[in-house]
């Protein structure tokens, strides 16, 4: 079996024996997924990169105690979510920025990030604006709801996987996600004509 074909469990096992190369491979396999999740949560490329790096540091520090009862990806999402909640807590403690300021200052960064990712040679201004407003609306959600929305709609995790990741009852996840979607719809109401596609 080549190194690239090894499954996560094998890589984790090697990491637990102190194999740095195995950790390097896990990072290669999951860094893009982790970064995408982090960017949707924070709305800022720099914070997202920091959050991703912090999460992998925690993976490194705690992998010896990971019991492999859940999938590595589930465990990584849990760590990423905890890192994100800690980041929010630090922001609250420092009181340097309100969430509103965060949204304002990060819009342009996120916009740049989207532009860089567009494949089409023709710039779809309306679509870009819709995405910007949607990302902004997601940043208005309470932290846990934000994490759930991104997990379900962007990372395509199932309700069951989210429940396992956040250690919440399935019913709670479903009702909170519904509430989050209702809130998004409410936040976007003033610009709903943009979404009539």
């Amino acid at each position: 079996m080549t190194a690239s074909a090894e499954d996560d469990a094998r890589l984790v096992e090697r990491c637990q024996r102190g194999d740095r190369e195995a950790l390097d491979q896990l990072v290669r396999r999951y860094r893009a997924t982790a970064y995408k999740f982090a960017l949707r949560l924070t709305g800022d490329p720099d914070s997202a990169a920091d959050l991703t790096a912090e999460a992998f540091v925690r993976v490194f520090m705690k992998i010896g105690r990971f019991r492999r009862e859940s999938r590595f990806s589930t465990w990584l999402y849990r760590i990423l979510t905890n890192c994100f909640l800690d980041l929010c807590k630090r922001e609250r403690v420092r009181r340097h920025q309100s969430i509103e300021e965060l949204v304002r200052t990060e819009e342009s960064d996120v916009g740049r990030q989207y532009s860089a990712a567009e494949d089409s040679p023709q710039v779809d201004v309306e679509k870009a604006e819709r995405n910007r407003l949607l990302q902004e609306a997601i940043l208005h959600l309470p932290e846990y709801q934000r994490a759930m929305i991104v997990m379900f709609h962007v990372q395509m995790l199932s309700y069951e996987e989210i429940a396992e990741t956040l250690d919440m009852p399935l019913g709670t996840v479903k009702s909170r996600l519904n509430r989050a979607r209702l809130m998004l719809r409410e936040v976007l109401e003033p610009v709903q004509e943009l979404f009539q596609v």
Partner: peptide, 29 residues
């Protein structure tokens, strides 16, 4: 309106990770 928003969230475009992300992570590790 709810259905429109529901379907739209999943259509957010993919994002490009920074070129030096891997290096940043491993440096921190």
């Amino acid at each position: 309106a709810f259905k429109v928003v529901y379907d739209q969230i999943g259509s957010l475009p993919s994002v490009q990770e920074p070129e030096d992300l891997h290096e940043r992570i491993m440096r921190r590790v």
